[in-house]
């Protein structure tokens, strides 16, 4: 069984922004969408191993800082070359003002 992991406070991420969260030797990106929801994906771009948390969130898209590849961070879908491989996504929930993620 996988437990929920406490990642950050809801107010640590601006709306339409992303932060990096490292846990158990892995790195994740946690997003705060313009409509107030939280999402979680793998932290590294699937093109080359670059941290997405340094990229730009526009609506529901994260743009990678290295070559401007884009993913829909809700589904992980690769939207724009040079990214071709989708990004893994993980469930999130908000409990008592904290964002929690569920990673296997």
């Amino acid at each position: 069984m996988t437990d929920w992991i406490d990642a950050c406070a809801t107010d640590e991420i601006d709306e339409e922004d992303v932060i990096r969260f490292d846990h158990a030797g892995r790195t994740y990106a946690i997003y705060h969408s313009p409509d107030g929801a939280f999402y979680c994906t793998d932290g590294l771009c699937t093109h080359e191993q670059v941290h997405l948390a340094e990229g730009l969130v526009m609506d529901h898209v994260i743009e990678c800082p290295k070559h401007n590849g884009q993913f829909d961070y809700r589904t992980g879908e690769a939207k724009r070359a040079p990214v071709c491989v989708n990004l893994a996504t993980y469930p999130t929930r908000v409990e008592g003002g904290r964002v929690q993620i569920k990673v296997s």
Binding site: H47, E48, K66, H67, A81, P82
Partner: peptide, 10 residues
């Protein structure tokens, strides 16, 4: 050239 330019940046 989209791919070649990605390599130029890497």
């Amino acid at each position: 050239w989209r791919w070649s330019h990605a390599r130029h940046h890497t």
